[in-house]
Design a protein around this nucleic acid. Sequence first.
DNA 1: CATAAATTCTCCCCATAGGGAGATTATACT
DNA 2: AGTATAATCTCCCTATGGGGAGAATTTATG
Lengths: 72, 72
Amino acid sequence: MQVNSIKELVEKLVERRKSLGISQAEVAQLCNLSVNGISKFESNAGEREVKLSTLFKLSEVLGFKLSLEFEE
Amino acid sequence: MQVNSIKELVEKLVERRKSLGISQAEVAQLCNLSVNGISKFESNAGEREVKLSTLFKLSEVLGFKLSLEFEE
DNA sequence: CATAAATTCTCCCCATAGGGAGATTATACT
DNA sequence: AGTATAATCTCCCTATGGGGAGAATTTATG
């Protein structure tokens, strides 16, 4: 499906992490990021610009396939 | 189509800008960015992390539809 | 309630994308 | 060749995403 806002996307990632029963600390480790970074990432969802690389790392680790689609 | 790398995407944007016959300065103005920024953006394609917002602004101005696709 | 685990918050730090201004180099175009 | 125009580069600057460490708070769980 199409992502209409980063906020929405981050919310999905948080939701998924919780439904998988894993902590921010575990995700952080899997993504090679810090807990602090994950916390900021999740709790300020969409209110700040996130790094593309962070978005892709998080998505991958949580079992989503995120891609950039390009039309025309 | 799917974007496999930012480098590839930026190359497409540069190509398109040229085929439209517009300068970096014009694009910069349309995107509310600086010429300097556009130059760096184009000439270091994919070798540095670009802002999501910049990617989307550039794409839109050049007549592309860029979107984040989310699977599973 | 009490204890532990998870999350958020507060500092301060670092790295870097993009801005401003000006110099330099490429590319037209006559 | 000469003269615009476009693109790149060099400084230095600002804003901000994420890191580190620790405190404070929230959320389980016994």
